[in-house]
Each structure stands twice: as C-alpha cells, then as structure tokens.
Design a protein around this nucleic acid. Structure first.
Lengths: 348, 348
DNA sequence: ATTCGACGTTGAAACGATTCACGCACTCTA
DNA sequence: TAGAGTGCGTGAATCGTTTCAACGTCGAAT
C-alpha cells in the first residue's frame, strides 16, 4: 500500500539517514542545520553533500513537536474572495515577514461553525496567535483560546472586552458618513442592505446609519427600509434588491450597501430592473475596493485603510507575544473616508 | 519566559494529563479519540469529562509525526487577490471537503522564488499533494517533488510532460478568440498587454494571438504591438497603457489584456488619458471576473469555467492518490468562451 | 471443569527532530 | 608537565501521539 504511491523512496529520508551517510551523529546533522558555525568546515560539507544526495527535507512535525512551537500565526477573515480582505491579508503578511512568521489564512464565509473549525485546526497546529474577524456574536471561543495561551487580536472590529486587542475602522462613523451624504442630497427614504446582526461591522454601520438619520431629524421607521441579506457578496446584493423592488410601499430613492461587493450585485440587479442610477436610486457602498471607481456608474463608497489595518493587527499580535505580561491591550481605530462618485451624485 | 505569555497553564495539556485525570492509560485516551466504539461507555465518558475539564486539544505535530501523514494538500496560485483564482480555489475546496482533506493555500505572486519557498514549506509539513499554477518556466522543482512521493497536478496550465496531470483551459484558443473578435470588427493594429513569457498562460495566449493574426492574413510585425508588463494586475495594466501611449508610431485601435485585472488598470489609465472606449480603443480582457460586466464600459472578456477548473484539479489529485500506480496521468482541457460587451463592440 | 473467543484495557515502542551534558583531542600558559 | 581552556562531536533524553502485542476477565461452548 505504501509503495504504490511512492515513486522511488519508500519513506522520506530522515536526519538519521543523513547522519549515517555522512558518517556523523544525528546531533551533528542538526547542528549543521541550525548552528552551522559550530561545525567544522569539512564535517559541514560532508553533511551538506549527504543532504543533497538524499534530497533530505526537514520534517516540520518532528521539529515542532520537539521545539514546542513554531513561528506561525493564523488569520480568519469573513470572505477571502472580497478584495477588501485580500488587501488586509497583504498588510498582515508584510508585517509578519519582517519577523519571519508564517501565516495560515482562512475564510470563515461568515459561518461561525467554519470559524470555530479553523480556530481548532490552527490550535492543533500550534499557532502562536490568531487574528480574527469574528462571524459569531459571541467571543467565548476566542476568550477560551486566549486562556490557553494563544494570543488573539480582533481584525476589522472593535473589541468589546478590555483584555483582547483589536484593530478596526470606525464603522459607526462610516455608516453615518454614508447616510449624511445621502441626506445632504435630499434623500429621505433610504434602503439599507445590511448583513446579519451577528456580524459586528453590520451592527456598527447600522448604528451610524440610525444616528445620522436622527441627527437629520428623520424618523427611521418612515425613512429607513432595512433589508437583511444572507451573505455579504454580490449574490446577497442582487437578492436584496430583488426583494426590495418586489416589496409594496414607497420605493426608496437611495440605497446604502454594507460593502462594495454587495453594492456590485445590487447595481447589477438594479440595472436588470431598468432602474436609473443615481436618478431613480442613489447607491453608496463600503470599502472602496479596486474596481469601485471603474463601474458603469462609479460607486460612491466609504474608504478604509486596508493595508494598514492588516499590518497593524499583525504588529499588535507580534508585540503582544514579545512583550509578554508588559503588553497593554489596546483598541486601535482608524477613520473612514467618504469617496463621492457618480452612483450617488450626478455632479461628481 | 514561558510563563509570561501563558494565561493559566504553563504547558498545554497532553494526552498523558488526560489519562492521569481519568485514571486510564494513554492508549485508552487515544482510543476514545480515534476508535470510540472500542471503548466501554463508562470509560469513554470518564475520558471525555477529563478532556473537557482540561480543555485538551490534540497536538497535530505529534499526531502527524506518528501517523506519518495527514489529509492535507497544498495549492499555489499566481495571485490570491485575483477573483479568478479565488473562484478556482473555491472549486478546489469543494472537492477536497468531500474527502475531508484540508487545503493550504498560498499565492506565489508570480515569483518563482516565493513559489519554491511555499513548495518547501508544504513539503516540510507533509502535504500529500500539491496543485500549482507555475510561475517559473521550469518544472524541475515539481518533478523532483513528485519523485519524492508528493503528487502534483498543474492548475490552469497544460502539462508539458506525460507523467504529470494538468487541468487547464485552452489558452491558445482563448487568445485566438479575442483576436478573431477584434479583427472581425475591422481592427488591424492591436496592442497586446501580456505578462512575462515565463508564465505558461502568457505564452499560450500569445500563441493564439499570433495564430489568429496569421489566419486573418495580418503581419504581426505591423499589426501587433506587444507590451510586456511586470505583474498581471491593475497596476500592470495601468503601467502598460502609459507606456503604450507614450510610445511613438501609430497608436493601435484595439487592445487585448492578458486578464481582467490588467484590463481594469488599462481602462483606468485610458480614461485618465481621455481615450474613448471603444471608439478610439477597443478593449478585450480575459477571465470574465465578477465585475467585468459592471464596469463603466462593460468589458468584453474570455470566460473560463473557474469553479470546475479547481474542482477537477482536486479530483484528479485525490484520485491519483487513491488509485496509486493504476492512475493514468491526463491533461484535462476545457474550452473558453468569448463574452462580447461594450468595451469592444458599441452595438453590444 | 476446561477451553475458547470476545472484549476492554494496558504499556511500551515507535515517529524525527532538538538539545544538552559530556568526552575527546588539542593548544596555550605557568 | 600539569592544568586550564577551546573547539568539535557524541549520544541519550525528550516532545505527544498512535499502534499493537499482550493480558486479564467473563460468559459460552464443549
């Protein structure tokens, strides 16, 4: 059974095989690998030749088992297919590279169960820390993880507890920015395509929405049409618009989408229904992803410092590890910025 | 040193700790974990309680070290930020899930060195197989990997050798489709924003381009303006267009971009230069990513069966493992499809 | 009454690397 | 020439799990 799938060797060569071939002890081979300067030139060369001849590749499991831990951290984002999160991930990688850490990256697809599964997988693999954009309302799992010695930093959401750090953008402000803008254009009946309120970003942006409406003296009951979509992507947006247009009552004149991917789907559905943008429906997205400015109708959006977000989260995580008990937990918060384009403002 | 970063426990509990607490041997705990039906109810319950109380989490390293291998495969794509590849990855995941395999996903960013580094990392971690979209011209590293017992399937490129399987889309045909379309619209001077020829897709699409020109009786030297861009993304596209417009000589009336991300950047730069699309410049992309139909000028593109591509690659890999020596290497090839939109055809 | 198999459990031997106390052979110094 | 110091190398213990031969116990079959 084991020979069928193996080309040549029946078993990958171990450090012992290398030692035998080079005529040294395993300890010496290990030294060549990890402290080459403590080995004489001739011995080192002999070992390196043996490694080359046998095509020896270190066994990470054995290495890690003995060493106890390895320079790896995990990150779980809501949706790896969302350009916003890939840019965040790039920021994380850039910071980790400086300390020679490796990243295990996964997407929860907004499913708390998937999130939990990946967290367990990461833990079994002995990651030193995790960065998570939680998809569940509860932080219990993450707190337990922290108690088991794995550092945790929340990514793109503000921490509700004092003893877990977070790096986020002010989503309340972001939501308010979008609505203030639409209100300033004269809209008084606005649709809000939002995700489930188990996701913190959705809660916060909604809070900003409500606050901005109140500030403008508008009654949410009359001026806001909330549509909850299942997933924060193009399909969700399309679905949300279809439900909105099917519904009875006054059709809103403006729409705020919880992110740009959702807005993309919404625009597609609106176009399919022949709704003019922004004349019949003004649209605002969130994230200002790479293609937002290039759409049929350039998308007004709330911009966030993506790369910096990821970089800072990784920085916090690494500092938390290196500083140990001296580390002060903190909530880093960046400010969002509204980018006005044609999807909301014909004069833009 | 070790206590500073640990919350409570100084060391994560091992199977031995669980055994002690439950008053059984380590073998029994292992049995509870792996063959629960071979353990009596009362013992099993006692062990499970101990596991719960100690918050025991299996150590994947030890597990894998002893078991020799684990249900994991790796995948390396050219650019994780490209929606094309995230869709492919989704297809891979869907197939792997059926066999309870785990995926390690990485992006080479078209850098052969990064690719090699990730391959080594995967190998050290004992993956059973890898799916790779090669960024280097040479397959030596992959062949060596295969000889060391790790199955290899090429992803989104046709295998040049008989003993490595591949799943691809006919890129020669795809390139030809784009050019045939532009020629049929009357264009005789066409720009081709292509990536480096170390990347197989670029070579193949170029071959299709040249073949289609020849079929149309056009001399490439006169009708084709080749621009080589450094990276296959929006920045590359912008850069390519800037160089094209700065150059002397007849300006082409049409442009074929090696992928949609590149086309996005190209469109942005063209707009900045006030070039009308498609009147002054017709543009065709490749991949038909999610936002292609929604751009300022909807993008004509060559569509590929992304999800199926990934699914099939994973299927081939898993079958290769399970069938062993009986497995027949094969080159699966799907056909691309041209989707005509406004960026090339005003009547579309 | 003895033998047998089934069942549940044990305990020790792996897996492959790292680490560290120790030993050996030299050279240098007093 | 003894003693200290230095540079290299050794080999055994260790990490946490899985696996498997072996063992005790009990009920059924002979």
């Amino acid at each position: 059974m084991s020979t069928t799938t193996r080309g040549r060797a029946d078993r990958r060569p171990s450090i012992t095989d290398v030692a035998k071939r080079a005529g040294v002890s395993v300890g010496t081979v290990s030294n060549v690998l990890n402290r080459p300067d403590q080995v004489s030139d001739s011995t080192r060369d002999r070992v390196l030749v043996a490694i080359e001849e046998l095509q020896f590749v270190r066994n990470a499991s054995a290495r890690q088992l003995r060493a106890g831990t390895i320079q790896t951290v995990g990150a779980i984002v809501l949706d790896i297919a969302n350009p916003f999160f890939t840019e965040v991930a790039r920021g994380v990688e850039d910071r980790l590279a400086a300390d020679e850490y490796t990243l295990m990256l996964s997407s929860s697809d907004e499913d708390p169960e998937r999130e939990a599964r990946y967290l367990r997988l990461f833990e079994e693999h002995g990651v030193q820390g995790v960065m998570v954009t939680p998809s569940a309302g509860s932080l219990d799992g993450l707190l337990a993880l922290r108690d088991r010695g794995i550092d945790v930093v929340l990514l793109d959401t503000t921490s509700p507890v004092d003893d877990i750090s977070s790096v986020a953008v002010d989503d309340v402000r972001g939501g308010a920015l979008a609505i203030e803008h639409l209100v300033s254009l004269g809209h008084t009946r606005i649709a809000f395509l939002n995700g489930p309120l188990t996701i913190k970003q959705c809660v916060d942006r909604r809070e900003g929405v409500l606050a901005a409406l109140a500030d403008a003296g508008l009654d949410p009951a009359a001026s806001l049409v909330e549509i909850t979509i299942g997933s924060l992507n193009a399909e969700g947006g399309e679905d949300g618009v279809n439900r909105l247009l099917d519904a009875d009552g006054d059709r809103p004149t403006a729409m705020f989408c919880v992110n740009d991917l959702t807005a993309l789907g919404a625009l597609r559905a609106l176009r399919a229904h022949g709704v003019a943008i922004p004349a019949e429906m003004a649209v605002v997205g969130y994230d200002d992803v790479v293609f937002a400015s290039m759409l049929t109708v350039p998308l007004t959006s709330v911009r966030q410092p993506t790369h910096q977000l990821g970089w800072t989260a990784a920085d916090l995580l690494l500092r938390q590890r290196s500083e140990g008990a001296a580390f002060q937990h903190q909530r880093v918060q960046f400010q969002p910025e509204l980018v006005v384009r044609g999807s909301s403002d014909p004069s833009a």
